[in-house]
Every structure is written in C-alpha cells, then in structure tokens.
C-alpha cells in the first residue's frame, strides 16, 4: 500500500508548524509500517497530550488519544487485554518522561510488547515553549528566561536501566534510519523504545537561536554519530545514534498466559 493509504487524508495539511520534526517522524513511522505490510486493523496507536500526540488523529489505525502522560498506561490495558494487537505509542519528551515518567519506567520494567516512540524536541510546544526534562541546563525557554538550571537525562540509559529490551536513538535528519529503527522496534517482542531527536523550530529553535528547521537538522547531523564510530570515540560531546540494546527477555503478556495456565490447573493460591 502507498503511504497515503495509512493516513486520514481529510485532516491534512496537519496542525504542526512548518519544518516541525514530528511530521518527519510520522512520515518515517508510516513507511516502517508499510514495509512490514501490517493490516491497519491490527494496529492500535495510543498517544497522550502535546504536539506529538496529535499524530494519532492523522493515521488510519485504531487510535486512542488520551490524557497527558498516561498513554503507556492506556496502552498497557489495550495490549494486555488483546495481546494480538500491535500497540504503538508515540510520545513527546515531556509527555513520556516528565508527567509520564513513572508509566514509562514501569512499562519498560514489565517488558510488555509495546513500541514507544519518543519524539524528543526538548520543549513543551503545545503550551508555547516551556522547558522540558530534556531541555537541559543552560537552554532558554519561556519558563527559563534566565537560562534553565534543570539538568536533562539520557533517555536511552534510562530506558535500558528500567528494563526495555530494545532501545534505539536516531534523529529526524536520518529519516531512513528512523524508518528502519521503528520497523525493528515494532518487530521486537518486548518493550521497545526509539528516541527520535526532533526539531521544534518555532519554540526551542527560536528561543535558543538555533536557526531554521534546516539549521536544526544540520546540527543534529553534526552532533550525532553512529554508536562506536570514530567520531563518537574521539569526541565525548557526540551523541551516539543506533540500536543500544536488543535482547530477548520474557514478555509480559506471554508471562501472564503462564499465570492463567497455573491458575486453571489449580496451582498456586
């Protein structure tokens, strides 16, 4: 099927600003699903609140646009009650890791077969440019007019520490890589996380004098490099891209099937 078969064309052009990286993530995500040849009926997309979460309205799947930060909790209910569904959860950095941080950690810990895509633009865009937990110290935001003092954290390290069994990072500049990583994340059985560094030219870019969407994408190209590459080894400032972890561990819904087996055979209790 063509890309347009996966979207709800009547809602285009979408609400995102010109040059917004979230559109590129949408673009890549649809292409990964297209290459997998999945039926639209077997995909449930769950999102929370924010610019990123509006992605749900544009795709022709079962779509659940929920409340701020809780998308993974809703998704857990969807997946566990009907494990044959493919559940994809696109989230913004604030949505996933500030208000939704606890749900993120625990979905990873359970290793439930959900694909989490974190569209990290380092800002709260929908509300007009407040700092997020990934803005990082020294950045400017409407709520950090004298420069942010909040340190950020490393999404990849946190996801791995919490127990996610597939963890990857890429950027919107690397659209082909993004498509491939999301495809692998969907195929992975277990909790998978793809951090896509994304540009918000309207707020993060403007506040921090990073130039246009194009300039921001060029910057993402220059500050990142593949895991273990020469560039990454030589420069500690470089942010590594690639698949950081991909391992097989017991998946939550499969494990619960064993609980049912034990319960119906009268074991335990």
């Amino acid at each position: 099927m063509a890309v347009k078969d996966y979207i709800r064309e009547r809602f285009f052009p979408h609400i995102w600003c010109a040059g917004c990286g979230h559109g590129i993530v949408l673009n890549s995500m649809i292409r990964s699903i297209e290459t997998l040849g999945m039926s639209k009926n077997e995909i449930v997309m769950v999102s929370g609140i924010g610019c990123s979460s509006r992605i749900c309205g544009y795709v022709d799947f079962h779509t659940l646009h929920t409340i701020h930060g809780r998308a993974l909790a809703f998704a857990t209910g969807v997946k566990m009650s009907k494990p044959e569904l493919n559940v994809i959860v696109p989230m913004g950095d604030g949505d996933a890791l500030s208000i939704g941080g606890n749900h993120f950690i625990h979905a990873a810990r359970r290793n439930i077969d959900i694909t989490a895509i974190i569209m990290n633009n380092r800002i709260y865009g929908m509300t007009g440019g407040q700092y997020s937990p990934l803005s990082g110290a020294g950045t400017l935001a409407t709520t950090a007019p004298y420069h942010n003092i909040d340190p950020d954290f490393d999404v990849v390290k946190m996801a791995m520490a919490a127990g996610a069994t597939f963890v990857a990072r890429t950027t919107t500049y690397h659209a082909k890589e993004t498509t491939d990583m999301i495809r692998q994340a969907i195929l992975h059985e277990g909790f998978s996380v793809v951090e896509v560094m994304s540009q918000c030219p309207t707020y993060f870019g403007r506040k921090n004098r990073l130039g246009s969407a194009v300039d921001m994408m060029k910057q993402m190209k220059s500050i990142t490099a593949p895991i273990g590459s020469k560039a990454a080894r030589e420069n500690p400032e470089i942010i590594e891209r690639g698949i950081f972890c991909q391992e097989e561990k017991p998946e939550y819904c499969s494990e619960y099937d064993k609980v049912i087996e034990r319960a119906t055979q009268g074991q335990g209790v």
Binding site: V3, I7, P13, I24, S28, T172, A175, K176, T179, A213
Partner: peptide, 13 residues
C-alpha cells in the same frame, strides 16, 4: 527520494 522521506508535511511523492 530523500525529499519524500524527510518531508514533514507528507507533501512530496
């Protein structure tokens, strides 16, 4: 197809 893949508006084919 880089233009198509990177288009945030899904406008290029």
């Amino acid at each position: 197809k880089l233009c198509e893949l990177r288009c945030p508006d899904l406008a290029v084919e």
